[in-house]
Each structure stands twice: as structure tokens, then as C-alpha cells.
Simulated scan of single mutants.
Amino acid sequence: MRTVTLSQKFIAELFGTLVLVLMGCGAAVLAGSHVGFLGISFAFGLSVLAMCYAIGHISGCHINPAITIAFLAVGRITSKEAVAYIVAQIIGGIIGAGILYLIATGKAEYTLAANGLGQNGVGEASPDKYALMSGMIAEIVFTAIFLTVILGSTSKNNPTGTVAGVAIGLSLTLIHIVGIPVTGVSVNPARSIGPAIFVGGAALSNLWVFIVGPIVGGLIGAAIWKLMDKD
């Protein structure tokens, strides 16, 4: 088996996160009026599923700081890898949002203020005006569920590991189907950071919710998994 370098893993995580933000948030910004919340949900899930098979053999396809931190907590990666992954993911999220912005501005009536970049929000910035507490609870619980699925489906004790990408992608789709009205769904700090940097305002001031919530939820998910099935 060939050795994968940390730089290769860095590029894979950057590219994978770029694709997730571009396609997931792109579905909301460019195609939302055509596909609705259900279509946006599948765009995020299918992006993760596709990247699992494109870069999973290189980096494990975390493309999410909450996943990386949870994997560090259960000993599946080193601290050096974790730092590199998180930096790559944030850069990838920013580039993905930047590409989406360049595409969106090709429509004359598009504006960041009116149309955004698929950013997450709570309170008045929530799609259905859910309060901050509801948003935080949703992000923590949904991320905990997501991490439990990821850790379980990729466990060496799971004989169906070769189809882990399907379970992971569909679980993210399910989370979006339920959670988009609440926060737009983050469960991924890098996915939230990219759009927020460009949009600013409430997206930036509320960004802490979408960093703290997923990280706490990821660690809870890791703890739940360890209680059930430790590698």
C-alpha cells in the first residue's frame, strides 16, 4: 500500500471542502427557487457521498473540522494531521464560497445582501426565524448524530465499511431535510466560515454558534460511539 503524504491529505481536504460548499451552498443560492429545501438537502448529502469516494482513500474525507476534532478525540488521527486538516478545510470553504460568489454575480439582480451565499443563521437570520437556543441545540444534536453515523460506518468492526459513504451522505441529507428551516444547517464550521466571511453582518456575528455547536456535538457523538463500539 502506498504512503499518502500530509501534503496530499491537505490538498484532498481542501478540495473536498471546496466542493461541499460550492455544491451545497450553490444549490441554495443558484437553484434554491427550483429545487427547494429537499433539493438543497440532497445537494449537501450527495456532495459528501461523492467526495467520500473521490478522496476518502487519501484523507478519509473529513471535510469538516468537527469530524476532524472528533477523530482526534477517539485517536484515529494525530494532532499534526488534525491541524493540517482544519486549516485545509477552512481554506477550502472560503475558496468554495468565493467561487460561488463569482458565479452568482453573473445574474444582474443578485446581491449579497438580498441573496447571500447560503450562510447559516439564527434569530432573524434563521430561515424560519428560530431563536438562538433552538439553533444551538439543533447544531449540537444533529452533529452528534452525524458523528455517530460516521464513526460507526467507518469502524473496523463494521463489515459494511465499503459503503460507508452512502450512509454518511444520506445521514447528512436527512439532517438537512429536518434542520434547514432552523439554521440552514451547518454541522460543519468550515461550511459556515466560508460564506460568512463574504456575507458579513449577522452571518459573521452568529458564526460562533456554528463553530461551537458542531464541535461540541461532534465530541458528544464521539463519546456516544465509544460507549457502543470502540475500535
Score class of each variant (00 low, 15 high):
V182L: 15
G152V: 02
T183V: 06
H176E: 09
V187M: 14
T183G: 08
L170W: 06
S171L: 08
T154P: 00
I197V: 15
G161L: 00
I175K: 04
T183L: 11
T173P: 01
I193Y: 04
L172E: 03
V178P: 00
V166M: 13
L170F: 15
G194M: 14
P159Y: 05
I197C: 12
F198A: 08
G179I: 04
T183R: 12
T173L: 10
A196G: 08
T160R: 15
S155N: 15
I175D: 02
G161P: 01
P159D: 11
I150C: 05
S186V: 03
G161C: 00
P189D: 07
V185A: 02
G179W: 03
V163T: 13
L170Y: 07
S186G: 05
K156H: 13
I175F: 08
V185S: 01
T162W: 06
I177V: 15
G161D: 00
I168W: 01
S192L: 10
V163A: 12
V166H: 00
G165Q: 11
V166E: 00
I197N: 01
G194A: 12
G161W: 00
G169H: 05
L172T: 03
I177T: 08
V185C: 06
L151Q: 03
I150M: 06
V182T: 13
A167I: 01
S171I: 14
F198Y: 15
N188M: 07
V185N: 01
I168P: 05
G165V: 10
P189M: 08
G179K: 01
A196K: 11
N157K: 15
G161T: 06
I150N: 05
G152K: 00
T154R: 10
N158P: 01
T160M: 12
K156I: 08
G194T: 12
T173R: 01
N188D: 12
N158I: 07
A196C: 08
L172W: 10
K156N: 13
I197S: 02
P195Y: 15
L172F: 14
T173I: 05
N188P: 11
T183H: 11
G184N: 11
G165C: 11
L172A: 02
V182G: 05
V185L: 12
P159H: 11
F198R: 09
L174M: 14
P195N: 14
A167W: 12
S153P: 02
V182S: 02
R191K: 12
H176K: 11
P181H: 13
S153Y: 10
L170P: 10
G184H: 09
G152I: 02
T173N: 06
I193G: 10
R191P: 02
S153I: 00
S186A: 14
A196Q: 09
G184W: 07
L151R: 11
A164L: 09
N157C: 00
L174V: 12
P189F: 11
G161N: 07
G152F: 07
A196T: 09
S186F: 04
G179Y: 03
V182E: 00
P189W: 09
S171N: 14
I193E: 08
I180F: 06
I168F: 03
P181S: 13
A167F: 14
V163M: 14
